[in-house]
Write a protein that binds this DNA or RNA. Structure first.
Lengths: 187, 187
DNA sequence: GTCTATAGCTAGATAGAC
DNA sequence: GTCTATCTAGCTATAGAC
């Protein structure tokens, strides 16, 4: 048993960089192995199921991070909603690197990835919507308005990321996040 | 000289379906030939430059359509702005098939496609923003507000398409388009 | 203008040495 | 646990028959 060249955690994070930028078909096992300093055959030791399970693992890691740092923050009891919003938006800025990094859900939603991961990505987006809806109710909004704002927040984030990526303008993403904050604080 | 099996126009439109759904890397020449009822070798007769020029041609066609049916509509002189907005939004619903079809710009903005077409896609998005800004001014908005609404419109369309695609909910896209209309009509 | 055949390469995946 | 070597299938692209 040789020592691991790179930890599972670090490897997953490095592969996430490739996957969110190039998508499922665009990311070769060669690419994914290289960012871990490995040869592709080594990936089959860690992921015996091949590319499909490898990407699944990265997707699970990404989703866990969002659940912990965004969804659970927003649905926490006995915390001030303004503070929860602020923490969640900071986490969102972090995971998308101020807009310079894509959303993995979107990267894996081209037709090939969609067939494999579409169902769970869909479910994860529903979790996003429910978490933001919970925040809206916490702020005293009616259910319908809370639902609207939640949907609006996710549309703005996804659209902001697409445009920030195309126009190469991180300021645009920053403003998008601020617009979401204002929409909740009623300004 | 044998007769063409399929017109250039029809072939381009069929290949657009593949490209917007699968992106650059995800669309093989086999796939692209098949939707035209051709073999891939035949594509090299029409596109001697290979895949890169083929996709370029589809992208140009797509951009021309947007310019004619959205941008030029919005910047037309001597037309009522409310009517121009209505026509442009209908065209947008049409080209995205009520949300069920992706934006080609987004599909080609994964890393591989971005290297090839990123510059012109960026320029095309700027054209979108300028066209909607022109509409805003036409409706009597100040320049800053007109710029804001234009950016908001494109973010909402892109985000709405991403979410409509992930959640498989066309009603969501319809509402997104209506939100844009309301944002211009001040409701 | 379209086709078959094929070149040259890279993809995902596996076997087995160390 | 990682590696080299290799398999098969698919990719882009080309040559040449019809």
């Amino acid at each position: 048993m040789r020592p691991q060249k790179i930890s599972d955690q670090q490897l997953t994070e490095n592969m996430l960089v490739v996957l969110r930028a190039r998508g499922y078909e665009g990311s070769s096992l060669n690419d994914l192995a290289m960012v871990g300093g490995l040869k592709k055959a080594s990936l089959y030791h860690r992921y015996p199921g091949g590319k499909e399970t490898l990407v699944q693992s990265v997707l699970d890691h990404y989703t866990s991070w969002l659940q912990e740092n965004v969804f659970e923050v927003l649905t926490a009891k006995k915390k001030k909603p303004k503070k929860k919003l602020s923490t969640a938006l900071q986490s969102i800025s972090d995971i998308y690197q101020e807009g310079s990094a894509n959303c993995l859900y979107r990267a894996l939603s081209m037709e090939s990835g969609k067939a494999l991961y579409g169902a769970q990505i869909s479910k994860n987006c529903v979790d996003w919507l429910e978490a933001f809806e919970s925040l809206g109710k916490d702020l005293g909004l009616k259910k319908k308005k809370a639902k609207q704002l939640a949907l609006h927040s996710l549309i703005m984030i996804q659209g902001g990321l697409v445009l920030c990526n195309i126009l190469d303008d991180q300021q645009l993403f920053k403003e998008t996040v601020e617009d979401i904050r204002k929409s909740y604080l009623g300004k």
